[in-house]
Simulated assay, not measured.
Amino acid sequence: MSAPQILVDADACPVKEEVVRVAERLGLVVTFVSNGGLRPSRDPMIRHVVVSKGADAADDWIVDNAQKNDIVITADIPLASRSLERGAHVLGPAGKPFTADNIGMAMAMRDLGRHLRETGESKGYNSSFSREDRSRFLGALDQVARRAIAAAS
C-alpha cells in the first residue's frame, strides 16, 4: 500500500498552514482542491488542483481521487460521507473526525439546520474559528496521519 496523501477541500479551509506543517513533518503529499484563488507552492509535496466553478466540482474531484487510507480535510458533511465510503480518514477543520459511527448524525443535524434556516427559525450563524479549534485540529491531524502511515506500512 502506498503512503497516504492529504486531500484538502481548500476554498474555505481555515487550516491550510496547519495541514502543510503536519504534512512536511511526516513527509506526506498534500493536494489543495479549489475553484481558484490559491497561491501555488514551489514545494513538490504541495499540489494545487483548480476545478471548474461547478457547485460540487471540488468535492467530486476529491472523491474521484481519494484512495483507501488517504486523509480528507473538509467541513462539508456530504463530502465527508462520500470520502468515508472510499475508505478515507476524514477530519473537519476544528479537529473533529468524521467516522462511520458519527456521519449519520452529522448528516441529520446538517439537514435539520438547513430546515430551520429555511423556515426562519434559525439565523444559521456559525461560531468563529478559535485558537483552540486550530490547536485541536493540529493534534487530530497528527494522530490521523500517523495512523494512516502505520496502516500503509
Rank of each mutant, 00 (worst) to 15 (best):
V29D: 15
V30Y: 00
T31W: 01
F32Y: 03
F32Q: 05
V33I: 10
S34F: 01
S34N: 05
N35K: 13
G36H: 09
G37K: 12
G37R: 14
S41Y: 11
I46C: 03
H48I: 10
H48W: 08
K53C: 00
A55Y: 05
D56Y: 06
D60C: 05
D60I: 09
W61D: 08
V63G: 00
N69W: 05
D70Y: 14
V72I: 05
I73S: 02
A75T: 10
D76V: 02
I77F: 05
A80Y: 00
S81F: 08
S81M: 03
S81Q: 07
S81L: 03
E85I: 13
R86I: 09
R86P: 03
R86N: 12
G87F: 04
H89S: 14
G95M: 13
G95K: 14
G95L: 11
G95C: 13
K96I: 14
P97Y: 12
P97W: 12
A100N: 13
N102D: 08
I103Y: 02
G104L: 10
M105I: 15
M105T: 14
M105H: 12
M107S: 11
R114C: 00
L116C: 00
L116W: 03
E118Q: 10
E118T: 06
G120L: 04
G120I: 02
G120W: 09
K123Q: 12
G124A: 06
Y125G: 14
N126S: 13
R134W: 09
S135K: 13
S135C: 10
F137C: 11
L138N: 09
G139R: 14
G139D: 11
D142K: 07
Q143G: 08
R147W: 13
A148C: 08
I149C: 00
